[in-house]
Structure formats: C-alpha cells, structure tokens
Simulated assay, not measured.
Amino acid sequence: MKTLKNLLDGLLPPQPGAADEEHALQLATAVMLVEVMRADASFHAAERAAVLAGLRAKFGLSEDEAARLSELAEIQAKTASDWFAFTSRINENFEMPQKLRMIEFMWDVAYADGHLSEHERHVMWRIADLLHIPQGAYIHARMRAQAAAGLSD
C-alpha cells in the first residue's frame, strides 16, 4: 500500500527510480481529473466518485490510495499556476492510447453530474490540446463517455 508520504515524495524533484516517476505520473493524471471536477460551478459527489473510479481503473489503486491521491491532487490543483508541469509529464510517459483512456476518464468526470457546463467543455478542450489529442479522437472519447453516461448532446 502506498502511503501519503510516498505520494508527497512524487512532488519532489525527480530522484532515480521508477517508483518516484510513477508517483509523479499518478499525481499529474489525478490533477487533470480534479481540474475537470473543479471546473463545474457546483460540486457533485458523482464527480468525485468518477475521479476516484478513474484513478482506480487507470493505476490499479485501492479505494484508500485513490482517495489519498485525489486529496493531494486537489491541493496541487488549487496551487498550480498552470497545467504544463502536469501535461508535460503525461506526454513524456503516456502513449496516445493511454492518453485517450485518460481523456475518457476526464469526460466521465465531466458528465458525472448529468450535464456538461461550458467551463467543463473549455477545460477539457485545453487539456486535450496540451496532451496533443487529435480532434477526431477527442470527439470520439467524448461520445463514448456521453453514451456511457446515458446522455445525448
């Protein structure tokens, strides 16, 4: 089980070792999911649940690990001046299929409350752009998440 200290260590300058890089990558991914959750004017428990589900599915984390990572990501999201540090780490470590799966998780968060706000749409577009997601793949990921949520445009 990963401890909060291990997750916090992911914020420190990179140290040799795959575990440190994995923690930093998990945090970067979690921050992107949290940013979508924070984009909505009102907080919905379903959005937090979608963030946690995405983290568990993406990284094979336990409920407790995902919750700790999400809490740390919320702190980072509130204090970050931009998304570049997070998206560049993701770009360096994820191949396109992994980034597309992450975008799908982000759409799941955006649609978790049953609607998509304009600000959520903008956040999704900006992050997808920073991750170099092709427009067609971005739209298809959105459509899959919409269908999974039982929604239509």
Rank of each mutant, 00 (worst) to 15 (best):
E65V: 02
A112Y: 01
R68Y: 13
P13T: 15
L61Q: 13
E118W: 10
F94R: 07
K58P: 01
R101W: 11
R68K: 07
H132T: 14
F43K: 12
A28N: 11
A49P: 00
T3K: 07
S70Y: 07
F94A: 06
E120C: 03
L130Q: 09
M143H: 09
L25G: 05
L131W: 02
G60N: 12
A39I: 06
E120P: 10
W83V: 07
I90R: 05
A19H: 14
L7M: 06
A77M: 04
Q26T: 00
A112W: 03
I103H: 03
L130G: 06
D64L: 05
D40K: 00
A141R: 00
S42E: 15
T29S: 15
E22V: 05
I75H: 06
A18N: 04
E21H: 13
F84L: 10
A73K: 04
P13R: 15
A19S: 14
E120Q: 05
V109D: 02
E118D: 13
D153L: 12
E35N: 13
A46L: 11
K78C: 15
A57K: 14
T3I: 13
A128F: 02
D108E: 11
W125G: 04
R144Q: 11
M32T: 08
M96A: 12
M102F: 07
F105A: 09
G136R: 10
H23W: 09
P13L: 13
I90D: 06
G10N: 06
M1I: 12
G10E: 10
L33F: 10
H23Y: 13
M1R: 08
E47I: 11
R68I: 00
F84T: 07
F86Q: 08
E21L: 11
P16L: 15
L11V: 08
A73D: 00
F59S: 06
A128N: 00
S42I: 14
T87A: 11
M102I: 03
A141G: 01
